[in-house]
Design a protein around this nucleic acid. Structure first.
Lengths: 146, 146
DNA sequence: CTGTATGCAAAATCTTTGCAGCCTG
DNA sequence: CAGGCTGCAAAGATTTTGCATACAG
């Protein structure tokens, strides 16, 4: 059997989740996908492509559990639907191309620091933040100007 | 007649929109509301309270037109539903209390500057951005610790 | 075995659209 | 008066929930 899911089973167990097939498969999807950021529908579609018989409701439930367990992070961007990405500990923000939808990640210590200062100035206990830059990537600017 | 809608009619006309009753009322709602940030449902409810006979579909259409015309700005935050606020030219970001939902606005020139630099370094033409800090406001921290 | 997890279908939310009639300019 | 605008109802899109059954530990 190729690609035994040892690693995923351990991740799940150490998060306190039973290692069920839907959960293992969903984890695999995120680890193998070309794009880091997937919607529930994306995950469902990829599961079907693999021949897995998993309902969309289960995909939503599993994604939620993974977010609560800290395995995934959920982002909203402007599309109105949520996208999920592997949570690899390293916080980062996003730059989204409005034309092709490509998402790049970045981290800027200066911005992080100012955010903490702003929250503190106003008496907030900061829990998290979401920063997304929207624009046109280099390729799409080229296409546009043709 | 109290509160004649002269001002709103001018705003609409200078945005190239016909001054219809639903549009005038929606503008008034935003100008008079206690909270700057309102969802479509919020606006609809406030209209009904005032006795205006305006459908929810029209509220959505009017809000979209106002966003396109630059009268309103749309934000997404984490709730899954969109909220709208008057666009008064002055860009700003948001700090949202996760407990009571209160939204404060802030502007930080340093963060704005770094965003432009980051976009430029990566070859993006920056169109807009959304930064939201999530946390607990001073009042809610107090409630929590009781 | 026991209780949690799943699949299916139905419902809940939020938002958009089609269409006949109304109103602004 | 003409064309855009509205209300209503219905459809779409996304996400959640109820319930009987299946499966992990």
């Amino acid at each position: 059997m190729p690609d035994s899911p040892k690693h995923q089973i351990e991740s799940l167990q150490s998060s306190g989740l039973k290692a069920t097939l839907p959960r293992i498969k969903v984890l695999q999807i995120f680890e193998q996908a070309d794009t880091r950021h997937l919607s529930a529908e994306d995950v469902y579609r990829l599961l079907l492509l693999e021949g897995a018989d998993i309902g969309l409701a289960t995909v939503y439930r599993v994604l939620m559990q993974f977010v609560e367990a800290g395995l995934l992070a959920r982002q909203h961007f402007e599309s109105g639907k949520a996208v999920f990405e592997l949570n690899e500990g390293q916080h980062h923000d996003h730059m989204v191309c409005l034309h092709c939808g490509k998402v790049e990640e970045f981290f800027d210590a200066g911005i992080e620091q100012r955010q903490r200062e702003i929250a503190e100035e106003r008496g907030y206990q900061l829990v998290e933040h979401a920063l997304a830059l929207y624009g046109l990537c280099k390729e799409c600017q080229a296409k546009r100007s043709r």
